[in-house]
Simulated scan of single mutants.
Amino acid sequence: MPDNDVQGRTVPIEGADGEVRVYRRHPNGGGLVDVTATVADGAAVHESAYVEAGSVLGDGTRVGAGCWIERDVTIGGDVRIGENVHLGAGSRVGDGARIGANARLGAGVIVAAGARVAIDARVADRVVVLGDRRRSSRTDFGTAA
């Protein structure tokens, strides 16, 4: 067992290519996180979700059941990722973004801070998803405009 095994919390899994990857259970949710990934202690990863090598998840981020975060994905803080979402390798998700359940994002996708990706959305490789730039019906003070 590797030196980074914390009280038996690492899990070796053989991939389809025959390579054995080592994951650890994230303390907040129990999701499987590759030992080379960095997930903030304040993030939550559902026990049935995977975070692959080199990925980074920010504080306050929540990853739902059945999600697969591929290699080298960067996710900012306070992001909400619904159930059964797939984020392709090298994707970037900005702070406060929301990704709906069953969404599939290709490799190298960029989701801007505060942007929303709809439930069941399919986003092709290397697409940029921008936030809604329309003015809100409320002012910055939370009263009707």
Rank of each mutant, 00 (worst) to 15 (best):
M1K: 13
P2G: 09
D5N: 14
R9L: 13
T10D: 14
I13C: 05
A16V: 14
A16M: 14
D17S: 15
E19K: 11
V20F: 01
R24Y: 14
R24G: 13
P27Y: 01
P27C: 00
N28H: 12
D34G: 02
D34L: 00
V35C: 09
V35A: 03
T36N: 13
A37P: 05
V39C: 05
A40Y: 04
D41Y: 05
S48K: 02
A49E: 00
A49R: 01
E52T: 02
L57T: 00
L57D: 00
G58N: 02
G58H: 00
D59E: 15
V63D: 00
V63Q: 01
G64V: 04
C67W: 00
W68T: 14
E70H: 06
R71I: 10
D72S: 15
V73H: 02
T74D: 10
I75T: 04
G76M: 04
D78R: 11
V79N: 04
R80C: 11
I81N: 05
E83I: 05
E83K: 07
E83L: 02
N84F: 10
H86M: 15
L87C: 10
L87P: 07
A89R: 14
G90N: 07
R92L: 13
R92F: 13
R92W: 10
V93W: 04
V93S: 09
D95H: 08
G100K: 03
N102M: 01
N102Q: 07
A103Q: 12
A103R: 08
L105W: 06
L105S: 07
G108F: 08
I110C: 01
I110V: 14
I110G: 02
V111C: 08
R116N: 13
R116Q: 14
R122F: 07
R122H: 08
R122Y: 05
V123G: 03
V123R: 00
V123K: 01
D125F: 08
L130Q: 13
L130Y: 13
D132K: 06
T139H: 01
D140S: 05
T143A: 12
T143K: 08
A144K: 10
